[in-house]
């Protein structure tokens, strides 16, 4: 409202034409613009706030409100994983650690370790891009808080298990994204705050339901004698 008033002139001369008009126009503008602004802010008193009141006052979990392409914590569906090691090779940080060996009894390839260090992961999505079988993918899980640092390493293989020989089209349907992760880490986020997971409890935890459609083969002798946790098992021969 101010700059429209022309600069002052000599008192001996008449003020330039329009000065008085500009003065009163400024008053009118000040009042009318304040009036407009006030009505806009008042109308917001009757509008729905945009805030999503995470974590408690929400209709559905925030995970379901996120877009499908959200890059959250990684998850592997072991029923579809062929242990091709593409993800391990492409990971720039080396946060994926896969080990497999041949079972001397059955002669089948078995995966003994599929660890993802989510503390190291930078959520670039290269592993998910490179996975040909839609086994490794980002979920919409983002509440990755754990109570101890070693819980940040996710063990997707607890017991050595046979690698699938099926073709991509014959494989079981990809499990709902996030369902495997939610079973694996009950301490994830705030959904189960009553359970505090210690490293021992984690190691002794029941294996998540990751049963292959075929009968579970007997594990190899050196692996079977090891601790139930795949992370503690002695390293067998590296798969090619």
């Amino acid at each position: 409202m101010v700059p429209t008033v022309p600069p002052a002139v000599s008192p001996h001369r008449r003020p330039p034409r329009g000065t008085v008009r500009a003065y009163f126009r400024n008053i009118r503008l000040a009042l009318s613009t304040a009036f407009d602004g006030m009505s806009v802010t008042m109308s917001y008193m009757f509008r729905r706030p945009l805030t999503i009141q995470y974590p408690d006052k929400i209709d559905k979990p925030v995970q379901e409100m996120l877009p499908e392409s959200y890059r959250g914590v990684l998850e592997v569906d072991m029923d579809r994983c062929t242990v091709c090691l593409q993800c391990q090779k492409i990971c720039p940080l080396g946060c994926i650690n896969i080990e497999s060996c041949k079972n001397p009894e059955t002669g089948n390839r078995e995966v003994t370790k599929f660890d993802i260090d989510i503390g190291l992961c930078m959520y670039c999505g290269l592993c998910a891009e490179t996975c040909n079988f839609d086994a490794l993918d980002h979920t919409r899980e983002f509440e990755a808080t754990v109570t101890t640092p070693d819980q940040m390493i996710l063990h997707f293989v607890e017991k050595p298990r046979e690698v699938t020989k099926l073709k991509a089209a014959e494989m079981p349907v990809r499990k709902h994204k996030g369902s495997i992760l939610q079973k694996m880490i009950p301490a994830f986020g705030r959904r189960h705050p009553q359970e505090v997971w210690t490293p021992t409890a984690y190691a002794a935890a029941p294996v998540p339901a990751l049963k292959a459609p075929t009968a579970t083969p007997k594990p190899a002798a050196p692996v079977a004698s090891a601790a139930p946790s795949a992370a503690d098992s002695p390293t067998p021969e590296q798969a090619p």
């Binding site: 009505s39 109308s43 008193m45 509008r47 729905r48």
Partner: peptide
């Protein structure tokens, strides 16, 4: 004026969010 400002955005909000914009104080 308050009503007009509110009504100007009401239908678009309904279309985008699927919810009513009306949320009294």
């Amino acid at each position: 004026k308050v009503r007009a400002t509110f009504m100007a955005d009401r239908d678009n909000y309904k279309k985008m969010e699927g919810r009513d914009l009306w949320y009294p104080p």
